[in-house]
Design a protein around this nucleic acid. Structure first.
Lengths: 225, 225
DNA sequence: TTAGCAATGATACATAAATCACATTTTAAA
DNA sequence: TTTAAAATGTGATTTATGTATCATTGCTAA
């Protein structure tokens, strides 16, 4: 059982709850530690809990017509997982998996719904969360289709550097196949593209270790597509 | 000024309002008629109103790195337009345009936010709306990347037939360029793909008039990609 | 350590779809 | 009606990326 009242990365929504409500949430919330590769929620399964990524890193992925999964998003701490499904649908419409050591809080649906109807400010913060989330997909959708593989890979590397790892030298905890699923390409294209970006001296890569050598150049490739 | 209390296609959210609240909404809501091509909201402009599509048909579109717009979605009556931006951002992150004669209700932001904080059920319905909307984008995102042009075009034709026009013979109120922007392709590819689908006898097309001759065949192409 | 397996890199080849260039049709305007 | 402008169709060509195959590396587990 987690302790929501002292949770360091608790959401703005939870901030809007009063002490009694926080206690209620806490009583209906279970904290679970996860290893990379472990499944947080599974597409097609019955949804009974909303998950909250307290620490670590995870992905949202969804099966496509080809049978392979597409990665929709990299999730950082502070993200709700499965909320769209739990609130509007009985069956999870996407999967989520940890890609680093993570801590997940599973919140019982009923309690969560309770809090939405009880506390308007809580509901309001969730609305804001959903709006921002959806807008980020809009941007992603348009970008992915107007850039080619090099540009999309550059995007991803910059994302991990700027948003996730906040460093020029970092690990991307994804296999080449995973990166392909994320940027909508094949494993082979990812390999080639990594080679391309390395050849022009914008990055240095060894396995999962990435280092940005020429940030501006990488940015240009990301923006030009 | 519209009359929300007797609006035939008013949203489930508005259904949750009490008579006083409906009257309040009505007082802060302006109804506008639009012709095809007219802009409902504009990407980059300051957001002051949420739009609600009361009748007609519209598109959401967003500028990409190449400078051209990508169509994110075809909107049918009952859709909120610009809500994601109005609630979480000052600047509209996407545009919307009518593609058929449409009626739009512009709702003042402040009043809308008021209603969210006043009425938990209203907020709750908006949350459901946002959840469903986002899930539809997930499906679209994955589909678009795992199907080739023929499959995506088949998807679009089936969508207009099944969801919008509810007929096997209908008009698609989009230019070839628009269809291309919708299915992430070029105008030329759309033309060729229409020819492909016609050659195998699944559709008959004349200008913007489409007729489905072999529904099952079209479905197979849509599903196989 | 070694065997076995999964992940990755590298190369040749195939292909879907973009680009380019131009003809034709449709629509709008004068 | 005539003209201009926009939209659409078509064929040739190019290109990015997928597919296929095989070699290599690295990891896991006995």
């Amino acid at each position: 059982m987690g302790n929501c009242s002292i949770c360091a990365i608790r959401s703005k929504a939870v901030d809007a709850l009063n002490p009694t409500e926080v206690e209620y949430l806490q009583g209906n919330c279970a904290e679970v530690d996860m290893k990379p590769g472990e499944s947080i929620i599974k597409e097609g399964s019955l949804s009974s809990h909303i998950a909250y990524l307290k620490s670590g890193l995870a992905t949202i992925h969804k099966k496509g017509v080809k049978g392979t999964d597409q990665i929709l998003k990299i999730l950082q701490p502070g993200c709700y997982i499965g909320m769209q499904t739990v609130l509007s649908n009985k069956i999870h419409q996407y999967s989520a998996s940890a890609i680093e050591d993570s801590t997940i809080c599973y919140i019982d649906i009923t309690s969560f719904k309770d809090l939405i109807s009880r506390n308007a400010q809580f509901a309001n913060e969730l609305i804001l969360y959903l709006c921002r989330d959806e807008l980020s997909y809009f941007a992603r959708f348009v970008n992915v289709h107007q850039k080619q593989v090099d540009g999309r890979l550059a995007d991803t590397i910059l994302f991990f550097s700027d948003e996730v790892k906040k460093s020029r030298s970092f690990q991307i905890p994804l296999s080449r196949n995973d990166i392909a699923a994320l940027i909508c390409a094949t494993r082979e294209s990812v390999t080639r593209s990594i080679k391309d970006l390395s050849d022009i001296g914008s990055i240095r890569v060894k396995g999962k270790s990435f280092e940005i050598l020429n940030y501006d150049l990488l940015k240009i490739i990301s923006e030009k597509g």
